[in-house]
């Protein structure tokens, strides 16, 4: 498909009539036109020059009007997934894995997550990715998109100091809602990155179970375990009270296991373990998917000008080699009065 930047200039196309009205070559007087033989060659040259003149004008006007082929999208098949990143923005993410303030030597959990997720984005060139975050309330940072700069912009923001609480339940509810209804054959994956968990209210639990079944997404929890906190796989000690309030991480893990979707949890106690987990998720989430590649716009005005130059060259050449039928009026054979011939 073709398009124009300045379509109103196309009104100038009317000028293309001129070559058919005005003859480019000289007209020569002829005493009796009926006597001239019909010459198909001459006629075709005449028409050829008219068309060439019109074509030159049309080409110039098309170029001036900004002829271009607009960029579109092309559907291709690749390997990847529709991915939702759900990131914990609670204040504890600002601490290091050793649960201290970052001191320049050791980066905070949020900074590590940011760095590793940005690296991860570079390996997922065909994915559609959405970014959401949660603290006291869920926040949609970026809806599902294929724009890589916007993804980087949204992931970059997570190193900013975090907020107060951790309401993981409503965060998950928002994350599930970000999957588009139509995702074709692409696999859906939800990657939860958090360093803690909270108690999920029963009504939110129920909503999550329904939503997970409907969206059929793979679920990954990357648990950034700080020093001193209990692991999610660790069973409680015999005389320890095993309640969601005391062991929210373990109980979130149990809840996610019961959600009815493929689920894996990764427990990372340092940035290297996070990198390994992210890499493993990356290899798991490679399934054929249809993605749209954006085609850049292609300007065709230079092409139009080139064509116009060619037509104009033909015209000027015709004008150059043109010879009048009779260059001069032949001198009369007989001298007129006064001896003038």
């Amino acid at each position: 498909m073709l398009a124009f930047d300045r379509p109103w200039l196309l009104a100038l196309l009317l000028c293309a009539v001129i070559p058919f009205v005005v003859r480019m070559l000289r007209s020569s007087g002829h005493p009796r036109l009926e006597t001239t033989p019909t010459d198909p060659l001459s006629l075709s040259v005449d028409w050829g020059l008219k068309l060439t003149g019109a074509a030159a004008i049309v080409a110039l006007v098309l170029g001036l009007a900004g002829l271009h082929r607009p960029g579109g999208t092309l559907e291709r098949t690749g390997q990847g997934a529709h991915l939702v990143l759900l990131i914990d923005r609670s204040a504890s993410m600002d601490n290091t894995f050793a649960n201290r303030r970052p001191d320049g030597e050791e980066e905070s959990k949020a900074a590590a997550a940011r760095r590793l997720l940005l690296d991860f984005l570079e390996t997922r060139l065909q994915d559609r990715i959405a970014v959401a975050a949660f603290s006291t309330s869920p926040m949609l940072f970026l809806p599902m998109t294929n724009r890589r700069e916007a993804m980087r912009g949204a992931v970059s923001g997570i190193a900013e100091p975090g907020l107060s609480q951790t309401d993981v339940g409503r965060g998950l509810a928002m994350a599930f809602s970000l999957f588009e209804e139509e995702s074709g054959t692409a696999s859906r994956a939800l990657l939860l990155v958090s360093d803690g968990a909270g108690v999920i209210a029963p009504d939110v639990q129920e909503f999550l179970r329904a939503e997970a079944a409907r969206k059929a997404s793979n679920l990954y929890w990357l648990y950034l375990r700080s020093e001193g906190s209990k692991g999610i796989f660790e069973p409680p000690a015999p005389n320890e009270i095993d309640s969601p309030q005391l062991r929210p991480e373990r109980h979130l893990h149990l809840f996610l296991q019961r959600l009815g979707v493929p689920y894996r949890a990764f427990e990372a106690e340092n940035p290297e373990a996070v990198a390994e987990a992210i890499e493993e998720i990356g290899t798991l989430e490679r399934r054929p998917l249809i993605y749209r590649e954006r085609l850049p716009r292609r300007d065709l005005d230079a092409l139009a000008y080139g064509a116009a130059a060619l037509f104009l060259a033909v015209l000027s050449f015709a004008r150059l080699i043109e010879r009048p039928l009779a260059a001069k009026v032949p001198r009369p054979m007989i001298a007129g009065p006064g001896g003038r011939r």
């Binding site: 309330s137 926040m139 970026l142 809806p143 998109t145 916007a150 912009g153 107060s164 609480q165």
Partner: peptide, 28 residues
């Protein structure tokens, strides 16, 4: 910060979609 500054024309769609998703419920 939801999205750190990105080029506006190339990322117009995701930016405007993020804007239309803003709600008072996001307030922490």
């Amino acid at each position: 910060t939801f999205i750190e500054p990105v080029e506006v024309c190339e990322n117009f769609a995701p930016l405007t979609e993020s804007i239309s998703a803003l709600t008072w419920r996001m307030a922490w």
